[in-house]
Amino acid sequence: MNSIIRIQNITKRYGKNLVLDSVSLDIQKGSILGLIGENGAGKTTLMKSLLGLIKIDAGEIYIENHSIKTGYNKAVKNVGFLLEPTFYDYLTAYKNMKANVMMKSAFTKEKAEEINKILKFVGLSKVKNKKVDTFSFGMKQRLGLAQALIDSPSILVLDEPLVGMDPVGMKSFKEKIIELNKINNTTIIFSSHQLEAVKDLCREIAVISNHRVNYYQKIEHAISNIFTFEFERELSEIEIENIAKVEEKYQVANNKVTIRSTENEIFSKIAAAVKGNIIINYYKTEEDLNKFFMTNND
C-alpha cells in the first residue's frame, strides 16, 4: 500500500466542543479523495489539521512519512492548498504569487517563468498585472489554485474550491484538476457540497458526519446502480430467493423487480436466477450521490 497521507485517530476540541472525534484516513498516492459532509461536520478542521494550521489534541498525522508534529517542514514541503481564497488585495495577481515565492526562496528568472506558466494554466495570464481587489470570486478561486501550484506540489488540499463558480469556470477547474492528477500523479483531497462534482472528479469518497469518518470507500462502491427488470409473469418465491442471493437490496412489485447494486452489470445473474427466458424489459440508472450522502450522513 502506497500511503502518502496517514491520519491516525486525530481528535480536536474547542473547549467542550468536539470537532474531530478519532478520525482516521489512509490516503494513497495519486488518489483523488472527495470529502463530503454537512456544514459543521469537521471537513475544514480536518483539512486545516492536515496542514498544521490547527493543532490537534490527540493522534498523529504523517505526510510522506513525516510527522506533522516533529517534522512539520518536511511534511508540508510538497503540499499545496486552497482554503478560502485570501490574497493581498493591494498587490497584483503576479505580485501575490511573487510574494508567495519569496517566502521560501530567492526570486529568480526561473521562478518568474514558473509563475507565468501557472497563471496561464489557470487562465489568468491576461489579468496578471491587475490588482486582486478587482477580481471576481471565480478569478480569486483560480488565483488560489495558482498559488497552490507553486513549487509543483505532489499533494493538493482543496477546500470547497468550486464555491461561487459559474458552470464554465467549474468545468474548466475540474479539467485542470484531472489534468494535474493524470500528468503529475498529484494526490488531491477535495471537499465540496457539489456532489456531482465530487462524483465526476473523485476516485475515493469519505463522509464526515458527527465529527467522524462514517464512510471511506472507492466511489464506485459508494454509488449504486439501480436495475429495473420487467418479467412476463410474477416471480415465484424460489425465484425471489435466488434474486436475494444475488443482491440483498431489492424490491418486488407484481412482475417488476428493482435492484440496487454497486456492481456495473447484473443482467446475467438475474437471468440465471429465474426460470426460462422471461425478462421482457430491463434498464439501469445511476443513483444520485445525494441519496448516498443522505444515507451515510447521520
Partner: peptide, 14 residues
C-alpha cells in the same frame, strides 16, 4: 483575520 497568515505558516521553516 483575513487568513493570508496561513500561506506564510506553510511556507516558513517554522
Amino acid at each position: 483575520s483575513d487568513g493570508t497568515i496561513a500561506t506564510m505558516i506553510l511556507k516558513a521553516k517554522n
